[in-house]
Write a protein that binds this DNA or RNA. Structure first.
Length: 864
RNA sequence: GGAAGUUUAGCUCAGUUGGUAGAGUCCCUGCCUUACAAGCAGGUUGUCAUAGGUUCGAGUCCUAUAACUUCCACCA
């Protein structure tokens, strides 16, 4: 037999689970069940492979699913992947670049072929990875955001919202990525502070009387200026309003207008207004009836309106323009200034605000409903604080720009008539204009924002738009487990679209998992090269080790540190469990007969472990119900290692090794029963090894069993054994302090009236601390006395010896007792405490005080 | 500019409704005891960030401060 646990058989075990249909909901097998439990998996992007954050996220989902399955619920966990429109397209373009290709050279159809091939490769890899992690999701229901059923859902929802006027097309200022050459939603723009400059530029008055100085961070947009705005309250400019200034290098006259948007105290108090390239300026321009002038091409280069700068990039244009302005003596001054710049969240290029014709979704009403879901408590976000973030975003929501100038994604189902300009939205291909009857129809080139299909995920995965049994059984879903960074992108939008389309909030709970950091606290990422590859860890240590280590000590929703070192520490526990199983096997192999037991035959130690098991189970159930997986894991850890392995196994060994066959059989039967309950407690967390060990003791699958149960709880026996354990500790301590070799047999002296308790402990005392006999009469010779919760006890001094050490020890002990007595006294002497504190607390403290006083007396007597 | 989180033993972190501070690891001591040396038994280690307040009693509630982290935000 191997000495330690080596993970090996995981793939084989997984296959057996799948082959036996264990991941399918009970209802699929025609089993009538009451409560249903469902989770939809946040679909990983097919951009690459899983990282450690996915491993955490999916482990948590698997724990919840397996736990609830064992609790008898009708469980469904739907897996899937996301086409990740822009992210994947960026990756494919990168790959093409290596071949010297561009997507334009390839053409739309060829490009899409590549994208589907990409999906086959990476989507497939992701599924394999989820399987090796042990995820018990129903693969037959696996969904992809671009597969046919999901396409149908997208078309149907788009059409419905368009018909209701909630989806519309319009010219608005949007975020443009010059690299991806597409519009982006506000949520897809990352703002980063960068050091830059505030350029003070002179705009000469048209009448030749001096100039006006404007301050700007973006001089290159000057060609698109339509006016200069000042605050109406600003006395400096009061007489300038209505005058004309000359736009440098363009030599065009533009007016000075007043607008309260301008802050007097910032810069020069005069702002150049460029409606086509700034969202605020856009609003100002609108107020003053000045049309925007777009001065850039879609690749971020300047267009013909920039005159001699035509064709330069934004950056080059700026450099050259500043030089030219300097030469023309039109630069007043240059101040260093920190500016927050928007970047594309996929390619990190600086985003350009541009006016563009795009498709939008009106979010106003849906946002209100989504807010109500949280306010009413129908939707619970854990931790609570995240609700605030969610709320805040919804309150300030703007219409969602849903069109993207990309190829990989759901093509917008809008059709235009080339002859009459009519727009038609249809779920089916349109070939004829419903207005003029023309056959010259072309479909919208744009695709939808990838988050559009994601927003439908909770019901599109369950069969929408068909009215399926899955929707009936599993929608709304129970819990969504996800990371905080997609609360806007995804969670809020799912809530909005689900309530809109299905009339229901899509899940009851949203559990936020923390961010995994490296051992120095840095966020794991490819760029920092500090990522831990989950597959590498699984290959090396097994999925159970990874899962366990991701959960242990990972406080709810907190970011936490993870490293290979942590795995090495945490997997000791798994080994411990394995070794306990090995011990049980050994015991069983040396025992004859059926391993049954009667509840009436339980001895005091059995009753103790069942009481502990009972308490552990009810704690674990409580924690799991409040989705506090970390607390559940550490509670199980504590029960298994401390209470079962360190205490019960040792306490029951005398019985397991008993000469009495009946007694032996009984002890092994209990040991087995408790151990199997441990496997059940642990199965949702470390499914592979528990399933493997279980097969050594029972037939069938552990994952199909119902969750752990205890025979019962026994208050008296629990108390007594707690006392015996503390007595054992005390004797061990004495033995250690006096350097008494383990082989030395000792005599224990006890009071006659404690005989009933001591008798019950006699066997374990003899085995665990080598007490050879107990006497109930005070011997003539000197003794070492000590007080334990079991009573006043003593050992023969002749057997233990060493005066100095004894004195040292007693003095130390006395100090501790005195200290505690003093603290207690202060409280018990405080009349306020005595009147206001709860009675049971006072009684407890009084009892403790009495016990300590007795100990003190005993120690003092010995010291004399 | 707003908002949130974190601050507890050398390290990594628990601490559920206020009731004399916990785990793992590290370190020290003794054990290769017939499940496990990836182990067993025992031991040391804390102004619970700082300053106030509420309370009979505060790691826990309130207020302010500091450091770190994160999110949101259009101030040219």
């Amino acid at each position: 037999m191997e000495k330690n646990f080596e993970p090996k058989k995981e793939a084989e075990i997984y296959k057996r689970w799948v082959d036996n249909g264990l991941f399918k909901p009970k209802s699929d097998k025609g089993i009538k069940t009451g409560e249903s439990f469902s989770i939809i998996m946040p679909p990983p992007n097919i951009t690459g492979q899983l990282h450690i954050g996915h491993a955490l996220n999916n482990t948590m989902q698997d724990v919840l699913t397996r736990y609830n399955r064992m609790q008898g619920k009708n469980c469904l966990w739907v897996p899937g992947t996301d086409h990740a429109s822009i992210a994947t397209e960026v990756k494919i373009i990168e790959a093409l670049k290596k071949e010297g290709l561009t997507k334009e050279k390839l053409g739309r159809d060829e490009f899409l072929k590549r994208a589907w091939a990409w999906n086959d490769k990476f989507g497939g890899r992701i599924k394999t990875q989820l399987k090796s992690l042990g995820c018990s999701c129903d693969w037959d229901r696996c969904a992809f955001t671009m597969d046919e059923p999901r396409q149908k859902a997208v078309l149907k929802v788009f059409k419905q919202l368009y018909d209701e006027g909630l989806i519309y097309r319009g010219n608005k200022i949007i975020n443009w990525c010059p690299c991806c050459k597409t519009a982006l939603s506000d949520a897809e723009v990352d703002h980063v502070d960068e050091s830059g400059f505030l350029w003070h530029i002179r705009y000469p008055y048209a009448d030749g009387n001096g100039y006006l100085v404007v301050a700007t961070t973006r001089p290159e947009t000057l060609f698109g200026d339509v006016c200069v705005a000042v605050n109406p309250e600003d006395k400096r400019y009061a007489d300038k309003i209505g005058k004309m200034v000359i736009l440098p290098t363009v030599n065009k006259e533009i007016p000075v207008v007043s607008d309260s948007y301008v802050e007097k105290d910032f810069g020069t108090g005069a702002v150049k207004i460029t409606p086509a390239h700034d969202p605020n300026d856009y609003e100002v321009g609108k107020r003053h009836n000045l049309s925007p002038i777009c001065v850039m091409n879609d690749d971020g280069t300047m267009n013909e309106l920039a005159g001699v700068y035509n064709g330069l990039t934004r950056e080059d244009c700026r450099k050259k323009l500043i030089e030219d302005l300097k030469k023309a003596n039109l630069i007043e001054k240059i101040e260093p200034y920190t500016i927050s710049k928007g970047h594309c969240y996929r390619c990190h290029t600086v985003v350009e605000p541009m006016i563009s014709k795009q498709w939008f979704m009106d979010m106003n009403e849906m946002a209100k409903v989504a807010l109500k879901a949280v306010d009413s408590g129908e939707l619970k976000i854990i931790p609570n604080r995240v609700e605030k973030i969610y709320r805040n975003w919804l309150i300030n929501i703007k219409d969602w720009c849903i069109s993207r100038q990309l190829w990989w994604g759901h093509r917008i189902p809008a059709y235009y008539c080339d002859d009459c300009g009519n727009t038609m939205v249809s779920e089916n291909n349109v070939t004829k204009c419903n207005k003029c009857g023309s056959n010259h129809i072309h479909q919208e080139e744009d695709v939808l924002d990838t988050w559009f299909s994601s927003a439908l995920w909770p019901f599109s995965t369950l069969g929408y738009p068909e009215k399926t049994k899955d929707l009936e059984d599993f929608f709304p879903t129970t819990t969504l487990v996800t990371a905080q960074d997609i609360i806007f992108f995804w969670v809020a939008r799912m809530v909005m679209l689900s309530t809109k389309i299905m009339g229901k909030v899509p899940f009851k709970n949203v559990l936020i998992n923390g961010i995994v950091r490296d051992d120095e606290g840095k966020k794991m990422s490819k760029s920092s090269n500090n990522g831990v590859d989950p597959i590498e860890i699984i290959d090396k240590y097994g999925a159970d080790s990874l899962r366990f280590s991701l959960l242990l000590g990972n406080g709810t929703c907190n970011d936490f540190r993870f490293s290979e070192t942590k795995i090495l520490e945490d997997r000791k526990f798994i080994n411990k469990v394995w070794n306990a199983g090995k011990f049980l096997e050994l015991c069983i192999s040396q025992t004859e007969g059926e391993l049954n037991f009667e509840k009436t035959d339980l001895n005091v130690f059995d009753k103790w472990i069942y009481s502990k098991l009972d308490a552990a189970i009810s704690d674990v159930v409580k924690f799991m119900n409040q989705l506090d997986i970390n607390m559940a894991v550490s509670r199980i850890y504590n029960f298994v290692w401390d209470e079962f392995c360190d205490n019960y196994v040792e306490l029951t060994k005398p019985y397991v090794y008993s000469e009495n066959k009946e007694e032996r059989r009984h002890a092994v039967a209990i040991l087995k029963d408790v151990y199997i309950n441990i496997l059940k407690l642990l199965h949702p967390i470390i499914p592979f090894i528990t399933e493997d060990i279980y097969s050594n003791f029972a037939s069938g699958f552990l994952m199909e069993q119902s969750y752990a149960t205890s025979v019962g709880k026994f208050k008296q026996e629990k108390k007594l054994v707690d006392k015996i354990i503390s007595t054992i500790k005390k004797i061990r301590e004495i033995r250690l302090i006096y350097n008494v070799v383990p082989s030395k047999k000792l005599t224990l002296i006890a009071n006659a009236n404690d005989k009933p308790s001591v008798t019950k402990a006699e066997l374990v005392l003899s085995k665990m601390v080598n007490i050879e006999k107990v006497i109930y009469v005070k011997p003539a010779e000197e003794t070492i006395d000590f007080v334990t919760e079991i009573g006043e006890l003593g050992l023969l001094k002749s057997e233990v010896i060493d005066k100095e050490k004894e004195k040292e020890k007693l003095t130390k002990e006395l100090e501790a007792v005195d200290k505690e007595i003093e603290v207690l006294k202060v409280r018990l002497d405080n009349p306020n405490f005595m009147t206001k504190a709860p009675k049971n607390l006072i009684d407890e403290l009084k009892a403790r005080f009495e016990y300590l006083s007795n100990s003190k007396k005993a120690i003092e007597a010995k010291l004399k």
